[in-house]
Design a binder for these strands. Structure first.
Lengths: 239, 239
DNA sequence: TCAAAAGTGTTTTACGTACACCCATGA
DNA sequence: TCATGGGTGTACGTAAAACACTTTTGA
């Protein structure tokens, strides 16, 4: 199946692929059970058989590289309109053993619940891994993952992109745990509440948590309108 | 002359060039007369004859892309050990009219005085332009320049990379003007002084300014050791 | 009635911001 | 003696940090 092609194989002479020395590799982040996760693909053949790597693929002739990254993501997860940002180009001469291939790294943030709904969309062997436990990826994918994590850490302090990893409705503590996971340090609950609420980025819902063995927390939704306003003014998060 | 090759020409069959659909383009920033400048190259032939663009070139077979960028910079300016960072890959399908070429953008910070000393190193037509006045660059170079400016603005708030644009010895007001130029807003002199001095990044010199028609200012030098310490701890500049 | 998380209040400290003002020097 | 930038001092408001405390809910 074409859409499972990763940077492992050299593309067969395929009329829609023109750039034979450039690939795309995506770091797809998810957040589940209070842990940051990443979506990996298992290679079935070739020199890196049975090893895990980042999902990736080739760029078509009349397609921008951002478009290619979006297409690959759609093919793999069935999800559109994902938060997606380029990391950079990776081009060590020996990064790919069979030939000189430069790859453009991307990272994406997706709501795992959305993905789960459409599981089975692709027949490739694909799985979520806790980022903290990932090791021994093929080629330079470990490095790309690290750069992706760094970028995410930086971005989340400047833009409230964390919402892309959470379900539509979430509690303040869930959000705080997300920040703690990504940034790698603990925070003060009361101070976090005040700070994030004062930004006016969250719309409180009438709803509350259900089936929890403690006081039910209020649920919130991300408010994209105030986000836009904030972006225009320029701002920065510091937690 | 080979070292003037920019992304304008398709490379002649040259044994050391292997990647024929990837180029490198550099945004080289300088700072002179209180203005942020950029180094441009004039194309002498081809479809963009007499138009200005970013200096760039091709990647050799056994060379990483960072190495290639450093080499190109050395060939063009004669300067080594420059502050150089990759921006990202630019790959709109129509960015280069003759064929599908993806370029990797870099930006560099150099001390113009150093460059002036070695002027004439290259025979290419090369000149400094005020960034604010640059327009109509070839291909997507205008966009790359803008992304470079954005990145510089962001970085300078997180790392004291501005020093790379100043002479060895500088005054606090020079440094402040540099920040004002890059960030695009005015600052309070007393507050800037205190803030930057408290960071302990500057080594005061015994020397003072000469030949100025006002009280001579103390000169400072950048202190790379305290910078390292700061980097490890993590910090952020906000002006 | 206890655990566990929700949520509020308060105090202290540090820092950014905005100015007023004096100093040194050449024209 | 004036203009120009060099350099110091201070007062105010806001925000971060630390932490004590009350509330709600299911087990």
């Amino acid at each position: 199946m074409e859409h499972q092609s990763t940077s492992m194989q050299i593309p067969e002479a395929e009329k829609s692929v023109i750039l034979d020395s450039i690939t795309i590799d995506c770091v797809i982040f998810g957040f589940k059970n209070e842990e940051l996760e990443v979506l990996l693909v298992k290679h079935k053949e070739g020199i890196s058989k049975d090893k895990w790597g980042l999902p990736g693929g080739w760029i078509y002739e009349n397609e921008g590289i951002d478009d290619a990254a979006n297409r690959l993501l759609l093919e793999l997860t069935g999800i559109k309109d994902v938060y997606l940002e380029q990391l950079r180009a990776f081009g060590a001469p020996d990064r790919f053993p069979l030939s000189r291939v430069i790859t453009v790294g991307y990272y994406a943030l997706i709501k795992e619940e959305d993905y789960d709904l459409k599981a089975g969309y692709t027949a490739a062997e694909v799985a979520w891994f806790k980022v903290s436990e990932v090791k021994d990826l093929i080629y330079d994918h470990q490095q790309i993952l690290e750069i992706g994590q760094k970028r995410l850490r930086r971005r989340i302090k400047q833009e409230p992109i964390g919402f892309n990893l959470l379900p539509e409705k979430f509690t303040l503590l869930q959000l705080m745990h997300l920040y703690e996971q990504i940034l790698g340090y603990e925070m003060d609950k009361p101070n976090f509440r005040r700070k994030i609420l004062k930004m006016d980025l969250l719309t409180p819902l009438a709803e509350k948590q259900k089936d929890v063995s403690h006081r039910a927390a209020k649920l919130y939704r991300f408010n994209p309108e105030t986000y836009k306003k904030l972006l225009e003014k320029g701002f920065n998060f510091e937690f």
